[in-house]
Design a protein around this nucleic acid. Structure first.
Lengths: 180, 180
DNA sequence: GTCTATACGAGGATAGAC
DNA sequence: GTCTATCCTCGTATAGAC
């Protein structure tokens, strides 16, 4: 059910997806949906949190597997590209949707755990001299902003080539922007 | 009327803004709105295009005023910061809204003129040796991706300080990412 | 060109059987 | 826990007077 909702939300947008649509595509009746969730917004919120959790687990794993800031950052960016390639719906829903419009009570996405963790080890990289001294927000934006843009272009169908083929250049540009 | 619509669309989102809302806040009756526009989507589209035109004029002016790629890019980024500071609604509507959801027939924003012009003089900067050889999409993303992220963070209320105070660092990081 | 009144449909939500 | 049937609000859009 969540899978169907995710697929529809990202293809048509939250507001263009009716519960009827979800019922038709998932085969689950509206009554059942309301048995599991309070309402449509609650459904979206659950979906959102489950995706964030997967993301967070991913980032935690990366932190555990890599010791220095540079390889952590690179692994996170690679992960973003992989997810965008394999599960574009996930990526769209996480970083492309205007969550505030349909989940007004949710905190803004950048205060979500995986993003906090990332900023945290960027700050650490700065202390260790891997990253030049600068504002943490600027560093995180400069490092990953290019990747986010490229992924959005890809999701919009604007890029001529496969997403993967842009990774190396995007990574190098991002790192150049902040490397000490 | 367009001003009211812009304000409401950016505050509450397109789908959360009813024609009643626009009527109440602008004082103009729904009948009148339909006299000027075909429907709600048409209203949004007109708004969108008028904003893009202002943006394009701005970029054209910058190209005319500056000769080299570096100062052009810097001026464009400064312009983005200025607009985001002075008219946040404009900025939100242009680069933050999921236009496809309510204007399904509109081409994706990155194919809009001002963005094309920008990519064009980036390509030129590459030919002139100001920017290191790389994919044009990657270059544009790396250069401005960080700025877009910072502006979004600002619009989300996530940044502790005034937007302006982040400009210098953001610009330098962006340029470092692509400079030859 | 601007207004009021109203038609009409869609979609979120609920009740209650099984 | 899943279903069907139904309610009811709300929002888009139109008709037609001034």
């Amino acid at each position: 059910m969540l899978d169907t909702a995710l697929s529809l939300f990202t293809r048509k947008g939250y507001f263009n997806t009716s519960l009827q649509d979800i019922r038709k595509e998932s085969g689950i009746s509206i009554g059942s949906i309301y048995h599991h969730f309070e309402n449509k917004e609650d459904l979206a919120r659950n979906l959102f949190h489950s995706l964030l959790e997967r993301f967070e687990a991913s980032v935690q794993q990366i932190v555990a597997d890599h010791g220095d800031c540079r390889s952590r950052c690179r692994a996170v960016m690679k992960d973003m590209f992989d997810i965008a390639g394999d599960h574009p719906e996930m990526m769209i829903f996480i970083l492309y949707a205007r969550h505030r419009e349909f989940m007004p009570h949710e905190r803004t996405i950048c205060s979500a755990r995986p993003f906090e963790i990332t900023r945290e080890f960027i700050r650490q990289g700065m202390d260790d001299g891997e990253i030049r001294p600068m504002d943490t927000w600027v560093a995180a934006s400069a490092l990953f902003g290019g990747a986010v843009r490229i992924i959005q272009l890809h999701l919009d169908g604007a890029l001529p080539d496969a997403l993967d083929s842009y990774f190396e250049q995007t990574w190098e540009a991002g790192w150049r922007a902040v490397a000490a």
